[in-house]
Simulated assay, not measured.
Amino acid sequence: METKYNIVKKAIMSKILDGTFQPNQKISSESEMMKTFNVSRHTIRLAIGELVNQGWLYREQGAGTFCADRSAKEGSNNGGSSRNIAIITTYISDYIFPSIIRGAESYLSDNDYHVTLFSTNNDHDSERRSLERIIAQQYDGVIVEPTKSAFANPNINYYLNLERLNIPYIMINAYYDELEPINVVMDDERGGYIQTEHLIKQGHSNIVGFFKTDDIQGSKRMKGYIKAHRKHHLSINPKNIISYNTIEKKQKPVEELDKLLKQTNGDRPTGIVCYNDELAINLLDVLREKNLQVPEDISIVGYDDSFLAKVSEVKLTTIEHPQSKIGETAARVMLDMIKETSGNQKKQNEVESVIFEPKLIIRNSTSEIN
């Protein structure tokens, strides 16, 4: 069971990390905290004493206890002896994420940096806890894959605190637009366009698109899907745009495709554009249950060129994702940012974001319409 003083200590630290207590701001008095936490003065003093010793707080005789300004201490670590980089990703062991992480970790290790991995499982609370640990432990830099990047993020204050503490961060695969951070991403709108145009050029006009829209990548791929239809003067059946979120990803697309395949009178789709290869593999199971052949009866396009694109008897036509290259590039840019912020000296060449152009990999899951 967690001790009372440790609960108090964590609560005070959280207020510092989320910006509630600013540097040199006086914190609540011992009496106020005794009432807030319903604990003894001794417990409060233990918690405050540890935070003072660890540099989170400082005391002024006769004035009270204040939040320490840790920015100078944090900033001095950048490019210094600690050489620790944090990587926050939505998932660590699933799908293409291990390849992205390996790319970043390999480059950073070659440059004598230690890497610590954090996983959010695409959950904002998990992201907050990761950011609290990163700020508390004084990392030199942070590589972040945003959580539910299509939505307003409740943890923006933590990223603003990273900036205040002079800790550089870079975002990969997506980014929080309100922060306008340095980022390493794919042109996902173009990727969605290429997926869809490939099917259109093969004669398909009834194309269903599945897009996970709590991540900005899905929204952009959907935009590309719509653009391709407009460019080729094809109307879109509203039922052919299927959006889903992370929680729904295993069930909703399968159910929606099942409904679409029950259509008659020529309304059944002949082509499928998928948010990623993982989804495409799941949808292949539905097509098998319906005794539909790919690509003879229906064509399907994935995204990411993951290992899943080649594991089944149907080899997926898909969009190539840089995977390890995107991780390596993010690591290289991260180290450039650390050099730029070290000693508060600007480099002559400002660090810039990187956008990878998508490329279609054609295999046997698509063909011209009969």
Rank of each mutant, 00 (worst) to 15 (best):
I134V: 01
A136Y: 01
I101M: 10
D110E: 15
T120C: 07
I101A: 10
D187I: 02
Y139N: 10
G103F: 05
I172P: 04
N157D: 04
P98N: 12
Y176I: 01
S119M: 12
Y159F: 13
Y193K: 06
R133Q: 15
I170V: 02
I156Y: 00
Y176G: 02
Y169H: 00
E163H: 07
I167A: 00
E163Q: 14
V142L: 15
N121Q: 08
E127R: 00
E178Y: 05
F151L: 06
D187C: 01
E145Q: 14
L179P: 11
V185H: 10
Q138I: 12
V144Q: 12
Y169V: 02
E145H: 14
E105Y: 04
D125S: 06
I134F: 03
N153Q: 14
H198S: 08
D188P: 13
I172C: 06
Y193F: 15
A150H: 00
R102A: 12
S99E: 15
N121G: 07
I135M: 07
I194D: 11
S130C: 14
T147Q: 01
Y158I: 03
N111R: 09
I135Q: 01
N153M: 13
V184M: 07
E163S: 13
V142E: 07
N183Y: 09
G103T: 04
Q137T: 15
L131T: 02
H114C: 07
S109G: 03
V144D: 14
I167C: 03
I100T: 10
I172Q: 01
S109Y: 02
E180H: 13
Y139Q: 07
D110F: 13
E105Q: 15
M186G: 12
L117Q: 10
G103L: 03
P181D: 07
Q195A: 09
I101G: 08
E178N: 09
N121E: 11
R128M: 12
D125T: 03
I143T: 04
R129Q: 10
Y107E: 10
I100S: 08
G191R: 06
E163R: 09
S119H: 11
P168G: 03
D123A: 04
R102F: 07
D125H: 01
D123E: 11
R133K: 14
E163G: 01
E163L: 14
I101N: 08
G192K: 03
A174F: 02
L165Y: 06
A174W: 03
D177M: 00
F151Q: 06
R190S: 12
V184L: 08
D140T: 02
R129K: 09
G103C: 02
V115P: 00
D188L: 13
L179E: 11
S109I: 03
I135Y: 02
F151H: 00
R128T: 09
T147N: 09
V184H: 08
V115I: 04
N161S: 07
E180Q: 13
G192M: 03
I170P: 00
R129I: 04
E189F: 11
Y169D: 01
A136L: 01
V142I: 13
Y158A: 00
S126N: 15
Y113P: 11
D177Q: 08
L117Y: 10
N153G: 13
E163V: 10
N153H: 14
I101D: 09
V144R: 11
